[in-house]
Write a protein that binds this DNA or RNA. Structure first.
Lengths: 206, 206
DNA sequence: ATTATAGGCTAATTCCAATTAGCCGTCAAC
DNA sequence: GTTGACGGCTAATTGGAATTAGCCTATAAT
């Protein structure tokens, strides 16, 4: 990886642990293995490093959203994927979603950084809102909606069902971010949540 | 309010908006209406102001927990309160809980500050965990458990039911903290959540 | 071969925020 | 009515972090 990119990587790690203001350009440089003034050959100043991280993340999101849309909007693929959805595969969906968010290194660091910095300006708040509220609800809402269409789940209010699916996942995620030792406990809770969710919304009534 | 206390108050406001590191003792002093060096007549240094806020909050929590226990553990009072619990009063419970958390000035500022500073040290993480995960789940679990005992709600897993009750409330709260303009929307979602919760767990099966 | 550029370094410089020093008025207690 | 503590002020001082200046090497293009 070239220096320019390693700077972003190390900076993100530090920002996610201590927050922008508590990270010194010196710290970043040290991690990268260069001296602080050399950073300025790559970025105009400290703020520019932060901005570059946000930019990069936006790009990743774009790509991701793009690929999801292709999947999500193509009816032929969806039919195949969700036709024979059952309890177990729904639980797998929830778990893999959780574990991806939890362990994907980049995602995790970015989420923590955003958590710390979210009140600094409107833009960051908006990014957070989009990433951890609007997009998950709309994307998962689409998936769950498909399951409703398939008769796997039953409800007259998909958005709220989606909230019931996602909100516990989100809450458990924040718990693990704060204290990774609670991960095992959280996973157990997650599993129970998903089973209960399935009981509540599953076609058990039929 | 005496100066010593006004300092804490203004500091909390600022910390909750910008985070500890981005608030200058100067800012605090200005708000209080004194000069920065005068702050040091009341607190040893900036960190001591922060610590005093945490202390004060801990005290409040103690009191609160104490009073809640008296209510919560006294079987005579509970019976009266939850005997004729119905859908509407359960929804009122959820809404008032949400609105209290959302609008109580002290609570709100403290929550935002804790959100920003939670990764700074173990202690703060623990406070957050306790305040926004463990305690709400155990306290609300007790209330909802009583309702189950009364036959108002039905489940074989009270903790998960409680998670289903609380997690959406928590999520919506973080949304409003970030963008207060979404409060109206959040309130609507909250109401739907509670109605749906009641449908799912209410004695509709009987 | 020359030269320009990229990217590193050391040694300033600059700025700014936290804190200290030291002075002063007020007021309550003796 | 003197005194001491409380709480305020102005004017340093300190210390540290960001950034700039200016130099050097390697390498890639002309």
């Amino acid at each position: 990886m070239d220096t320019k990119h390693r700077i972003l990587d190390e900076a993100l790690t530090l920002f996610s642990e201590k927050g922008y203001a508590n990270v010194y350009v010196n710290d970043i440089a040290e991690r990268v293995g260069i001296k602080a003034p050399s950073l300025y050959k790559h970025y105009k100043n400290k703020q520019a490093i932060f901005d570059a991280i946000i930019d990069e993340m936006n790009n990743r999101f774009m790509e991701q959203a793009g690929s999801l849309n292709i999947n999500g909007m193509d009816p032929t693929k969806d039919a195949d994927i969700y036709k024979n959805m059952n309890e177990e595969s729904m639980i797998e969906l929830g778990k893999s979603l959780f574990l991806y968010y939890l362990h994907d290194d980049y995602t995790k660091r970015f989420r923590k950084m955003l958590t710390i910095e979210q009140f600094h300006d409107k833009d960051l708040a908006a990014v957070y809102q989009s990433q951890y509220y609007d997009m998950p609800l709309s994307y998962q809402g689409m998936l769950l909606g498909l399951m409703v269409a398939q008769g796997v789940l039953v409800t007259d209010n998909v958005p709220i069902m989606t909230l019931h699916f996602y909100a516990p996942i989100y809450l458990l995620l924040t718990v693990c971010d704060r204290e990774p030792k609670r991960e095992k406990e959280a996973l157990k809770t997650l599993e129970e949540h998903l089973r209960q969710f399935d009981k509540l919304y599953g076609r058990t009534i039929a």
